[in-house]
Computed example of a mutant assay.
Amino acid sequence: MKLLFLGTGAGMPSKQRNTTSTVLKLLEERGTFWMFDCGEATQHQILRTTLKPRKLEKLFITHLHGDHIYGLPGLLGSRSFLGGEEELTIYGPSGIKAWVELTLTTSKTYIKYPLTIIEIEEGIVFEDEQFIVEAKLLEHVIPCFGYKITQKPLPPELLISKTDALRVPRGPLLKLLKAGLDIELEDGRIVKSAEVTGTPKNGFQVTVLGDTRFCDNSILLSNGSDIIIHEGTFDHETANLAREYGHSTILDAANVCKEANAKHLIINHISARFMPSDIKEMLAQVDHFSFPVFIADDFSEYEWQNGSLIKIKDSE
Rank of each mutant, 00 (worst) to 15 (best):
L72I: 15
K52M: 05
I219A: 03
G203W: 07
P292W: 12
K25W: 02
N240Y: 15
L137F: 15
H269L: 09
P200D: 04
L27Q: 10
V125I: 15
A296S: 15
A98Y: 02
H264P: 01
H247P: 00
H65Y: 07
K263W: 12
N268W: 12
F36D: 05
V206W: 09
L4G: 06
S300A: 12
H63C: 13
Y110W: 14
L174Q: 12
Y91T: 13
H264N: 13
I190G: 00
G31V: 10
I266S: 01
Y113P: 04
G123T: 10
L181F: 11
M282R: 10
G246F: 15
E244I: 12
A284K: 13
A272G: 13
V168H: 01
G307V: 08
S308V: 15
L158C: 01
I117H: 07
R30V: 14
N240M: 12
N255A: 05
K192H: 12
L173M: 14
G7Q: 06
T212D: 00
L4R: 13
S78W: 10
T42V: 10
D128Q: 07
R54I: 03
R189W: 00
T89H: 04
L159G: 01
P153I: 01
G31Q: 06
Q45G: 00
T249N: 04
C257F: 06
E121R: 02
M275C: 04
L158H: 05
D182A: 04
L220E: 11
G146A: 04
